[in-house]
Computed example of a mutant assay.
Amino acid sequence: MTNPLLLRVLQGETTARPPVWFMRQAGRYLPEYRALRATTPDFISFCLTPEKAAEATLQPMRRFGYDAAIVFADILLIPRALGQEVWFEAGEGPRLGAMPSVEAMRDLTEGAGEALKEVGQTLSLVRAALDPDKALIGFAGAPWTVATYMLDGEARSIGKGERATARTYAYADPEGVDALLAVLVEATAHYLKMQADAGAQVLKIFESWAEGLPEDLFERLVLKPHKALVRRVRELGVTVPLIGFPRGSAALAERYARETEFQAVALDTACPLEIGRRVQAIKPIQGALDPLLLRNGGAGLDRRVDQLLEAWGQGPWIFNLGHGILPDVPIAHVEQVLKRIGAQ
């Protein structure tokens, strides 16, 4: 049986070259994606049309031969499964309607996987078409990150980049926010189980808004829910490896690696190389090229790739960006990186 390079690293192996995939590798920087996306104006509908979402997932695999495909979906499908209206405004991003009561959402948690069964259908289609030596990744937004959107709603207030509304709720109504996080842990666990059952070989948890949290809030809003989520996923019988991504956690990434049961920790763009080495001494790591440098290209891009290879290449490491690929990244720059690390 084929053991994809990515899975070998997640098992703790140091490979001759790091496996590589890019966050948001399916998306607007690809002309074939833009053509496909134009066939369905509504983004949520596009995500929940398995044939189109599968095609979007496979497009970068055909073009670049990444070591892993990540299912094309969105972290804000979970609020939709819990009864909150979600839509995307062109050029502005996500918008959410009024949040249902925690009690009403609690009744929907066990059905979250079934409510989003189209994502499972997408995974099954991709797995059937994907080369056996390529890994298939499923994902979900982490409870706190999803909660920030649910609490912020339209998120048009000053300080939205710091999720100011949600953070204020976390201070002003700790019991209410903790209850929401518990609902999201349960719903997300069932959603992830559905993805694993549909063929996902790896599951990634995106905590996009761990940034800027003081340590006590980080412990309460990130560490505690992540521990609970991993525990609940395992209770549901899921055995595939899990990657946690506490974006913006800085020095707390090391504590995160020690205290959670993820098989690997994804590091963001700002993570110092030395902290990455310390985390790597605990478990495999993923990251952390700057998407802006990828867009810029040139000799500076080569130098940074070489720095990352020198710093982290002697241990279990998945080469990736420190955040999602930008829509205006030249395809030639992606090819430049893949050649530099020996993946093309």
Rank of each mutant, 00 (worst) to 15 (best):
F139P: 07
G342P: 09
A115T: 07
Q336V: 02
L326P: 12
D173E: 14
Q307F: 00
V329A: 13
T39V: 03
A155C: 03
V102H: 02
F262M: 04
A38L: 04
G161Y: 02
L10H: 06
E51S: 14
E259N: 04
A129H: 05
R220T: 06
R62E: 14
T15V: 15
D178V: 03
A128Q: 15
G276L: 07
Q59K: 02
Y191W: 09
P214G: 04
G248M: 03
A98P: 10
A172S: 09
K134A: 15
N296H: 08
T40Y: 00
R220S: 08
A147M: 03
F64G: 14
V202G: 08
Q201D: 12
L48N: 06
A182H: 09
T14D: 08
D67S: 10
I282C: 10
L236E: 07
L213M: 08
A257M: 10
Y191K: 06
Q336A: 12
G91P: 00
L116A: 11
V20H: 00
A104E: 15
L267C: 00
C271G: 02
F206Q: 05
M1P: 07
R255M: 01
R80G: 12
L301N: 04
A182Q: 13
T39D: 11
P316W: 03
W209C: 04
K160S: 14
E92N: 03
A115I: 04
A332V: 13
L213Y: 04
E89H: 05
A270R: 12
I78Y: 03
L30R: 07
V185Y: 07
F72R: 09
E207D: 14
L82S: 08
P41D: 10
A172H: 01
V102D: 06
L125T: 12
A182M: 02
L77C: 14
E162R: 08
G153L: 06
G176R: 02
T2H: 09
E335M: 08
R247C: 08
M23G: 12
L294A: 10
A266T: 00
R258W: 00
F139W: 06
R63T: 15
E51K: 07
T15A: 12
G93V: 05
R24C: 11
L181V: 10
G248Y: 09
L58A: 12
I78V: 15
R62F: 04
A251S: 13
K52I: 03
L294E: 10
L308F: 11
M150C: 06
V222T: 11
R62D: 14
E55L: 13
G27N: 08
